Simulated assay, not measured.
Amino acid sequence: MAADLAIQNLNDGGIEMDNKLRRIAKPFIAMIFIAVLSVSALAQNAHQSAIEKTSNKGGTHRAGILLLAHGGKQQWNAEVNKLAAQVNRTIPTEVAFGMATKRNIQSAIDRLVAREVTEIVAVPLFISSHSSVITSTQYLLGLRKDAPPELARYAKMDHGHGAHHTNHAGGAAFDPTTPVKSPLPIRMTAALDRHPLVADILLDRARHLSRKPSREVVIIVAHGPVSEDDNAGWLADMGALVERLRRASNFKRIEYLTVRDDAPEPIRGQATAQLRRMARRASNEGNRVLIVPLLLSYGGIEEGIRKRLEGLDYVISPQALLPDDRLAQWVLLMVEDLTKKT
């Protein structure tokens, strides 16, 4: 019928067709008409899909990101907020600073709920998942059954008060050691760990310092945890990162360690001695020593590394992982990978 109508329009336009030509042209015109309808339908579906990805109307899925970060000095926090603003252009993002600080996590969740997301994805902007801060946060988010013993210590850091606080609005006491309240499902990704983008950034930091790679030793230095088990996890991930660096470069040698700032003596002293041995050995071999800290942002820990290396010959990267646009990319990739598993 559509083909007959199209042929009639041709005739009305002054293009005459005899019956034989009509019989030949009719199936071809019908095919063209069906193709036009199909393309139109596809375009409409694509448009609707794009709307659904950015809208919560009609019950469609819309994730929001709870960006977790340790927090530090003003400059440190500013870098994280800048990163969050980048990610927020694509997916609603709210930051919660602190070491498993429930008050800040709850506030960020409330802000995401107000932005009408349908699911919350927590992304820990931490160097390693091997941390009692991470396990404590998992408990607060309802992703872990038992509270780690360290959570009580972190709770005391909440505004420098004790474990319980009176709500400023005059409500019930606020307990920083119990899980948060959320009307939305919450999931959580891994931390930076051994992600390839982290290796790419570290390699760029080393290359920025480099003059003649074949006569240079790179030492990747991370803060590290207190416990031996967690430290083993840190070192395993750092080893995987360093393997990527070795395959992509021709430095004389690339080594790595954690300085374990928060660990008691003699652990901390042993880490300092190990770092100095690495740097001294490289110098004695006639190599330049390139120190590349595996830190999220500068704000104090790098000064401790410099102090540990006093009197030795080395150069240190002027920049940590931040600022770098690839970390915004990492956040989005982590959310995408997790939501694909739905």
Results as ranks from 00 to 15, higher is better:
residue 5 L to R: 15
residue 5 L to G: 13
residue 10 L to I: 09
residue 12 D to Q: 14
residue 12 D to H: 13
residue 14 G to Q: 04
residue 17 M to S: 01
residue 22 R to A: 08
residue 24 I to N: 02
residue 29 I to K: 02
residue 29 I to S: 02
residue 39 V to L: 15
residue 39 V to I: 15
residue 40 S to Q: 03
residue 42 L to T: 10
residue 43 A to K: 00
residue 44 Q to D: 02
residue 45 N to V: 12
residue 54 T to F: 08
residue 57 K to S: 12
residue 65 I to D: 06
residue 66 L to H: 09
residue 69 A to S: 15
residue 74 Q to E: 15
residue 75 Q to K: 12
residue 77 N to D: 11
residue 77 N to S: 02
residue 79 E to Q: 15
residue 85 A to C: 01
residue 85 A to Q: 13
residue 89 R to A: 14
residue 90 T to K: 15
residue 91 I to Q: 02
residue 92 P to M: 11
residue 101 T to E: 15
residue 102 K to P: 07
residue 102 K to E: 13
residue 105 I to L: 13
residue 119 E to G: 00
residue 120 I to H: 09
residue 123 V to A: 03
residue 125 L to C: 01
residue 125 L to G: 02
residue 126 F to G: 00
residue 127 I to A: 13
residue 128 S to A: 13
residue 135 T to I: 06
residue 135 T to K: 09
residue 135 T to P: 03
residue 136 S to F: 05
residue 139 Y to P: 02
residue 142 G to I: 05
residue 143 L to Y: 06
residue 150 E to Y: 00
residue 151 L to N: 07
residue 154 Y to G: 04
residue 157 M to I: 12
residue 162 G to N: 09
residue 162 G to R: 09
residue 165 H to M: 14
residue 165 H to Q: 14
residue 165 H to N: 13
residue 175 D to S: 15
residue 185 P to G: 09
residue 188 M to P: 03
residue 192 L to C: 04
residue 193 D to F: 10
residue 194 R to L: 06
residue 201 I to S: 11
residue 202 L to S: 03
residue 202 L to C: 03
residue 204 D to W: 04
residue 204 D to P: 01
residue 207 R to G: 07
residue 210 S to K: 03
residue 211 R to F: 09
residue 212 K to C: 01
residue 214 S to L: 04
residue 215 R to Q: 13
residue 216 E to K: 07
residue 216 E to G: 08
residue 217 V to Q: 13
residue 220 I to T: 10
residue 225 P to V: 03
residue 229 D to T: 06
residue 230 D to S: 09
residue 235 L to F: 07
residue 240 A to S: 06
residue 243 E to K: 14
residue 245 L to I: 11
residue 249 S to T: 07
residue 251 F to L: 04
residue 252 K to T: 00
residue 258 T to S: 12
residue 269 G to Q: 07
residue 270 Q to S: 07
residue 272 T to N: 11
residue 274 Q to E: 15
residue 277 R to N: 09
residue 280 R to S: 10
residue 280 R to L: 11
residue 281 R to K: 05
residue 284 N to R: 02
residue 288 R to W: 02
residue 289 V to L: 02
residue 290 L to V: 06
residue 296 L to V: 15
residue 296 L to G: 08
residue 298 Y to I: 07
residue 304 G to E: 13
residue 311 G to L: 06
residue 312 L to H: 01
residue 313 D to A: 14
residue 314 Y to D: 03
residue 317 S to E: 05
residue 318 P to E: 06
residue 321 L to D: 03
residue 323 P to A: 10
residue 326 R to H: 05
residue 329 Q to H: 08
residue 330 W to D: 12
residue 331 V to C: 10
residue 333 L to F: 01
residue 336 E to L: 11
residue 338 L to F: 02
